[in-house]
Design a protein around this nucleic acid. Structure first.
Ligand code: FES
Ligand code: FES
Lengths: 134, 134
DNA sequence: ATACACGTAACTTTTGCAGTTGCATTAGTC
DNA sequence: GACTAATGCAACTGCAAAAGTTACGTGTAT
């Protein structure tokens, strides 16, 4: 796979599921279709389950299914579920050292934080069902 | 060093220089202060020189100096000089494959591109001299 | 001539992440 | 109850990008 792999995988898979919401899919199916490994799929989809976007069932005839209607799942939901933080720098626990350095970090972090918010908002404007057609 | 190291290093160094714009600093001085290696410093500052933010001089008594007044160097200038692209996904040359996948990529890339623009704009609102005091 | 500093290429080390393997657990099917 | 098929999870391997390092050539002031 490549860059932004987790988000890509998640969105791709959800798009599929949005097509046939009632079909149960196994991680092996998904991995095969996405050209990756079942365990990787479970890792990523596991996060989506924690966020309440998917449900999984163990055992024979188990697998994965959407937990909500496709139109009720936004791109922001997916993004946040993966806690990727494409933008924000994750709280560098660096020695505060000098005040100049500190002010600088704070300023940049502030801007990044605003941008992150703005990104989430924009992503929230599209649901995974909308993307299929567009 | 840590994450976002190039940008951090660049901003930190420029902040210093904004304090005493006329003092010539060697890459060894800077590396020492920033806790890194002279070659790394030259690599990063080299990009800033290409962008016209700094000048360097070889030989005895050589080193680095600001090419403009501190108040004429914005955070965006630094960010762009390093062509880091914190946000935008660099044109994945993936097999277009299915139309759903393609539409998805396009949608996400579009949002990311907007966000990137917005980031640059926000960074453009602050100069490196402003940060020192704030 | 010498010492000092940049410029650059090549190499090594570190690090994060995808990929893999293995096994315990759970749930249908016979 | 035995068997099969699926998730859940932990540990390990492999790889690629970035930092760090070493080495050497070039230019410049003394
Ligand atoms: S550590 Fe304070 S400015 Fe460099
Ligand atoms: S490749 Fe999966 S949706 Fe087209």
């Amino acid at each position: 796979m490549k860059r932004n792999s987790r988000l890509s995988l998640a969105l791709h898979t959800l798009s599929h599921m949005a097509g046939e919401p009632d079909r149960m899919q196994t991680s092996a199916d998904i991995a095969d279709h996405a050209g990756t490994n079942p365990v990787v799929v479970r890792r990523v989809l596991g996060k989506l389950r924690e966020a309440g976007l998917l449900t999984s069932e163990k055992g024979h005839a188990g697998g994965w299914r959407l937990a909500r209607k496709p139109q009720d799942i936004s791109l922001a939901d997916v993004y946040l579920a993966l806690d990727e933080r494409l933008v924000a720098s994750d709280e560098i626990s660096d020695a505060p050292a000098c005040s100049v350095e500190h002010a600088l970090q704070k300023r940049v972090s502030g801007v990044l934080e605003e941008i992150e918010q703005s990104l989430v908002q924009k992503l929230g404007e599209t649901s995974i069902s909308e993307v299929r057609g567009a």
